[in-house]
Design a binder for these strands. Structure first.
Lengths: 353, 353
DNA sequence: GTTAGCACTCTCGGGTGGAGAGTGCTAAAA
DNA sequence: TTTTAGCACTCTCCACCCGAGAGTGCTAAC
């Protein structure tokens, strides 16, 4: 494909450009890396690299800049995937140990940790199952004709909604409704609840309907919810000289778009996927790269995390970091939320204080 | 204080500057408003207004720009507080009716609605009580030695946390623990739970301790949580020509700082408070104004909402909008969450289907 | 008190011109 | 055949200047 020397040269160009954000010239690179041949030779090689599309010229008399194809070749063939240093791992783990109490909180924390570790923006979706199942529901009266409906779904997700009744309902009656519905619908999916023909009073049917709606919305929502951190990391980079470019990026990272940012259909079921510049279908992303990884149990509860930054990024370090953090999160997920992590049968042996 | 004519002139200058974002000159304003005196007269008046600090000069030969003091005078004395047009109110109300199911969701929605209505950024804090009281707790097993603790607090707030036990605990036992703790602690505050000397088993004590921690964290957290929308509205305004200024604003609006943005100690308990530029203690806010209002029941559950934008903003329209939306939200809050809205006694008369 | 006239000040945009960086080509050296 | 030195050429960037335009402040007349 490429001669050894040209490969190495490409590697150096990328490394230098990632550092300096300046187009790199033949002279510069020769001095910087004390290469054993002259600038002229490098110019010849660069001309070839450019012919083949690995680097390009912003304008005639400027240095060279890696193209998307160049970065792609680098990621596939040149980059050595080095492991993170032990102390970095330690630091990251430590930050996770201060994780908040609620799921939302620690997902958000993970986005912040990732963003800081790679110096770019990070998006982390909430972990989801294919179809949620009801574990328990609870009705708590808050007014004569209003109650808070709390659903506990599998994998420790909690949903809540205020229900209004056409007439006053007493606390006792709420308890009995909850009781009945728990018996009827425990471990059912939203769809199953809809199709069920359990005997229900009118008011129970009203509640069951709300339960179904919430669960279906949760499933439909799927990866809608995600946390974004570190936008300022990206915006501070030299590529954002003009406020126009900043606004563009901010538009891409709008709250409403976050979930669409991650191309779920195109990422591997496991491991890190890299999408460089125009490899991404979305036009607005053509100047940015995405380093994505799913996390969680491959056939259970999963989410995805992504680093977003200019195509000029340290892919090696970013990939290692994403891989590591995805691992840590998968671990935490099975420790805390995965019901299959420890077989249920062990229950029998257990004693309680 | 100011002669009538100077007042009116100030009003026109502000109105023109808010529109155009350009320093306004004597000629411009004369032509624009067809004033019955000449530019020279206006220049004389402007010189006086400047002497007294209501307007200023960016540089010698530029037009005039309102100062913070000028805006302040405008807000106090010149601005007519006009009501929002009925159809705008209707539109806003309509947007609220599509409100989400969970409290977080509709607070976030309200921030988006406010931001759009005023064309600036908006921050809305979650509504809080002074001290939360436990309404009900629930333990749902998710692994042999882990359970999800769900707390329902007054005002329909829900908190959740995964609890790990030193040994396996069966579902029945969880139910009995929950039962016992519900009896002991229902309608208690976190502090009261801590001081209680109820008879508890070791594992119950473990759970009660977690409950206390969560509740105290929730109270301490207070206004920590807030939603921000419409940053791009602000960033698109002409005052943000340089990316530097954009970064400054983004820093102020960082997620972690949101709650500190609202100077709770300095806002009125009711009605709209306006803080213009350097009236705000925070240096970073000297170029921005804040239009703040609390919402909710004055002595019950309350939150605050604020509009953030450059000092050059349409104060009249912004104030009206904030006032109106705060009203709508207070209304919704008492409809859905305020337990005192309808006296409990009515319960007696109610019948249920 | 108001106005016209006018000199003055400052910004902004366009144009110019050199410095600097880097290229591509050619011809000689290895 | 590959590598290198030399050199003309190109393009950007920055500093500088200049004139147009907008607006002011002052003065003197109405």
């Amino acid at each position: 494909m490429l001669t050894e020397r040209r490969s190495q040269l490409l590697r150096l160009i990328i490394s230098e450009y990632v550092d300096s954000a300046q187009p790199v010239g033949s002279e510069t690179i020769m001095r910087r890396f004390e290469l054993p041949f002259s600038a002229a030779t490098i110019r010849n090689e660069m001309a070839r690299l450019e012919e083949e599309g690995f680097i390009s010229h912003p304008h005639t008399s400027a240095g060279r800049v890696p193209s998307d194809k160049g970065y792609r070749y680098y990621v596939e063939a040149l980059m050595q995937a080095r492991d993170l240093p032990a102390e970095v791992k330690q630091t990251i783990r430590h930050q996770f140990h201060q994780a908040g109490r609620e799921e939302d909180e620690w997902i958000q924390l993970s986005a912040a940790v990732l963003a800081r570790a790679v110096g770019n923006a990070a998006v982390v979706t909430l972990p989801r199952t294919a179809e949620s199942r009801l574990k328990r529901l609870e009705l708590v009266g808050i007014q004569d004709n209003a109650a808070l409906l709390v659903l506990v779904l599998q994998q420790a997700r909690v949903k809540q909604q205020v229900l209004l009744f056409p007439e006053a309902v007493e606390q006792e009656q709420l308890a009995s409704i909850a009781n009945h519905l728990n018996q009827a619908f425990s471990s059912h999916t939203g769809g199953e609840i809809g199709r069920s023909n359990a005997q229900l009073t009118q008011i129970e049917w009203h509640v069951a309907n709300a339960v179904r709606e919430i669960m279906e919305a949760a499933d439909r929502g799927g990866y809608d919810e995600a946390y974004l951190e570190g936008v300022r990391n990206v915006l501070q980079k030299p590529e954002f000289g003009t406020s126009e470019k900043m606004l563009n990026l901010l538009e891409v990272l709008e709250h409403r778009n976050l979930a669409r940012l991650i191309p779920f259909s195109q990422i591997a079921a496991e491991g890190v996927t890299v999408m460089i510049g125009s490899e991404n279908d979305r036009d607005a992303m053509h100047e940015y790269s995405l380093v994505v990884s799913p996390y969680g149990n491959p056939d259970g509860i999963t989410g995805a995390m992504a680093v977003v930054g200019p195509t000029r990024m340290d892919y090696s370090q970013t990939i290692s970091t994403v891989r590591f953090i995805a691992g840590v999160m998968s671990e935490m997920l099975s420790t805390y939320y995965d019901e299959d992590a420890v077989p249920r049968e062990l229950d029998q042996d257990a004693t309680a204080s």
